[in-house]
Amino acid sequence: MIYDFGLAKLLMPDQTRTMTRVRGTRGYLAPEWQKNFPISVKIDVYSYGIVILEIICCRSNLEVNVEDTDEIVLACWVYKCFSSIELDRLMIGEEVDKKTLENMVKAGLWCIQDDPTLRPSVKSVMLMLEGTEISVPPCPTYSPNFWVEAASYLTNDSKVVMRFLHNHIFTRFGTPRAIISNEGTHFVNKVLASLLAKYSVKHKVATAYHPQTNGQAELSNREIKGVLEKVVNPNHKDWSKRLNDALWAY
């Protein structure tokens, strides 16, 4: 029924008659194929995620005859509706259980993450679709519609976090609907909780057992760290001076 799954054969050419080059339907192929990244079983998870979103919306992953250009690419359209809490726009004229719809959308968005390490296993996807609690997925694709903000400080406490939020987030982009952080004491404390409550900002905490909740930040941190490792001195003491250049390169 779905012909893109299992096309990646980890065999030498003389070990099989099956073609092992990039083959499949455009729109269902994982980004690894275009980026020349190592191929794994997670490419099938990506394809399955696209199929989930197609089933939900009753349309193909690419539609050019639409009124709104935001609707052309299905994955981008679904994430936009999800992030703006407007999933009903995906099911106009249909009566559905909102919780079930939200879970299916979350499962699909987790499956189509650009970073294959963030994609769940097939077993996890099945559990998601059966009703297991699903964390909020990050934006599935790299996009110029988001920026990474970072700054170096001598200490790491609640006052520093509040200063960073005020100087780099609130005064530049406005107050967000929610903030996701890890379980560090500089994030989880009464002072910061009071500040976020003042501006009606929800605080979601990513646990060590499920770091994917903060997947976009984890991915950005890893890539910026990789940039810094290439430009800092051997003793790594000048990393703070190179941070802005690394952000610009990223």
Rank of each mutant, 00 (worst) to 15 (best):
I180G: 02
S158P: 01
F173Q: 07
Y199V: 10
S200W: 15
I179L: 11
L154I: 07
A178P: 02
N156L: 11
N214C: 00
P137M: 05
R177M: 07
T175Y: 11
T185N: 11
W147L: 09
P144C: 07
L165K: 01
E183M: 14
F164C: 14
Y199L: 12
T207C: 07
W147P: 02
E149W: 04
Y153N: 01
L196F: 05
K202L: 04
H168W: 09
F170N: 02
R172L: 12
S152I: 02
S181N: 09
P211W: 02
S143K: 08
N214D: 00
S143L: 12
H203V: 14
N156G: 10
A197Y: 08
N214Q: 03
V136N: 02
R172F: 05
P140K: 10
V160E: 15
S181T: 15
A151Q: 12
I180Y: 09
F187D: 05
R177I: 09
V205Y: 10
Q216W: 01
G215Y: 01
S135N: 07
F187Y: 15
G174R: 13
V161Q: 01
V205H: 07
S200F: 13
Y142A: 15
K190C: 11
A197T: 09
A193C: 07
S158N: 04
K204N: 13
L154N: 08
V148I: 12
N214P: 01
S135A: 05
H203S: 13
